[in-house]
Computed example of a mutant assay.
Amino acid sequence: MTYELTSTITYSDELWDAAAPTYRAILAHPFITGLVDGTLPHEAFRHFVVQDSHYLRDYARALAVCAARAPDDDTTRAFASDAAGAIAAEQEMHAAFMSDLGGSADEAAALPVGPTTRAYTSYVLATVYSGSFLDALAAVLPCYWIYARVGEDLLARSSPDPLYRRWIEAYGNEEFQETVRRVVTLADRVGAEATEGQRARAREHFATTARYEWMFWDAAWRRESWPV
Rank of each mutant, 00 (worst) to 15 (best):
A200E: 12
S122T: 15
R182V: 04
T121I: 13
T209Y: 01
D100P: 00
A220C: 08
E175M: 05
A148W: 15
A156Y: 08
R189G: 00
S99Q: 15
G103R: 10
R181W: 04
V184I: 15
V150T: 13
L154W: 06
L137K: 05
Y171W: 13
G131L: 04
A109V: 13
E196L: 12
A109E: 14
I146M: 09
W217E: 06
A110G: 14
T117P: 09
T117N: 15
V140L: 08
E196S: 13
S99A: 15
P115L: 02
E213L: 03
S132W: 13
L186C: 05
R181V: 09
A194R: 10
I146D: 00
A110K: 08
E152V: 03
T209E: 01
G172N: 00
G114W: 07
S132Q: 12
S99V: 14
E107P: 00
T121K: 09
F176D: 04
V184F: 08
A138R: 07
L111G: 01
L163H: 07
E178K: 12
L154F: 07
E169Q: 06
Q177R: 15
A194H: 05
L163D: 02
A138K: 05
A138N: 05
G172A: 00
T195S: 15
D100V: 06
I168A: 03
A119I: 01
A220H: 05
Y123L: 06
E175K: 10
P162E: 11
L101K: 08
V183I: 13
Y212I: 01
S158F: 01
L141T: 13
A200N: 04
E193I: 09
R182S: 10
P162L: 13
P160W: 14
G197D: 12
Y123N: 03
V128W: 05
E213Y: 05
D153F: 04
V128F: 08
F176T: 05
